[in-house]
Each structure stands twice: as C-alpha cells, then as structure tokens.
C-alpha cells in the first residue's frame, strides 16, 4: 500500500473523470453542482485512500463515493433551501438551473434512492450486477430484485433492455 496504490487511484480517477461527472450530473442536474460533487468525491476518496483494501476494487469503491456524495449534496441542498425560506434578508434567491433531460430521465430521478442507484449504474454506467452489489452494499439477489422492480415502475419492457 502506499504511494503505488495512491497513484493508481489517482490515475483511475483522472482517466474516468467524465463518467463520474455525468453520474453526478444525473443527480444534481446542473454543471456547477456536478463539478462540486466530483471535486468533493475526489477529496474524500484521496483523503481516505487507505480505506481501499484491494486496488482491484477501486472502481466500485469510487463509484460508491461519487453516488454518496451526489445524494449527500442534494440532501444538504434541500436543507439549505428549507432553512433559506426564512432568511429573505440574505438577498435574492437565485434559482438553481435545472437541466431538463427527457421524461424517462426525470422518472428515474423519482425512484427511491436505492433503486435509482441501481438503475443508473446499470444502464448509464454499465456496471455489472456484481459490481453494483458492491457499490450499493447489498447482496446480488437483492440487487436483481430491486432492478426488476425499478424497471417495472418505469414501465420498461424487460425483454427490450438486455439484462
């Protein structure tokens, strides 16, 4: 462990930064926030790089961090928004830009947290089910079940999308 591992993690991050950005974007829906999330995720990851036991798992490890950071960001944002309602004196409330995507995308956003994670990781980032299980820290069968459930909710033809 040590320098070598650290460098490999850094390399991995740099190589795949676009992916992480998009994933973050899919949550926060605007550029600035997505950038913030990615930056936070990297900082968190590198500050605690020793927590990664096995370098092979860097992918799922980092994805997990990005997803968690994204969700955390949204939660904090919501808190701020709620708190902000009382403080009009703070100046003009600047509406955060919310990028519209297509309908389905919005619907995915409506799904519950776990199901949403799974769907996004599966279809947008093309992680294997095993990898997803690692990211969300659930066992494989649970992942499958939630995946199907999600698809049903989205009224997707399960046959169509190759699982």
């Amino acid at each position: 462990m040590g320098k070598k591992q650290y460098d490999r993690i850094v390399n991995y991050i740099v190589e795949n930064q676009n992916k992480f950005y998009r994933l973050a974007f899919s949550y926060v829906r605007n550029q600035d926030d997505a950038l913030d999330v990615v930056q936070n995720a990297i900082c968190k990851a590198l500050d605690h790089y020793t927590a990664l036991r096995n370098i092979e798992a860097v992918k799922t490890w980092f994805y997990r961090i990005v997803v968690n950071e994204s969700i955390l960001f949204l939660k904090n944002q919501k808190k701020e928004y709620l708190a902000g309602e009382e403080n009009y004196a703070d100046g003009p409330y600047i509406e955060k830009k919310y990028e519209p995507m297509d309908e389905l995308f919005d619907q995915i956003d409506q799904l519950d947290e776990e199901v949403q994670k799974i769907i996004k990781l599966r279809f947008f980032e093309e992680l294997s089910l095993r990898e997803i299980a690692d990211v969300v820290q659930m066992n494989l069968n649970t992942v499958k079940a939630k995946l199907y459930r999600g698809l049903k909710l989205l009224k997707q033809n399960i046959q169509e999308v190759d699982l």
Binding site: I13, Q17, Y21, L35, V38, I42, D102, L104, Q156, E160
Partner: peptide, 27 residues
C-alpha cells in the same frame, strides 16, 4: 422514450472544460 434513448442523452451530457481543472485541484 426507452432506456436506450435516455442512455444516449446521458452520454451526451456535456463535459465542461472546467472539470479537468477541478479534478487536478482536488488531487
């Protein structure tokens, strides 16, 4: 739209120039 199309939209999310900087900065 189906998932495939949505996925395309996802992949078309533009990457800002700034991303690279931010990544470097964080590192």
């Amino acid at each position: 739209s189906d998932l495939r199309e949505t996925k395309k939209k996802y992949e078309e999310i533009p990457i800002p120039e700034e991303l690279h900087q931010r990544v470097e900065e964080a590192i």
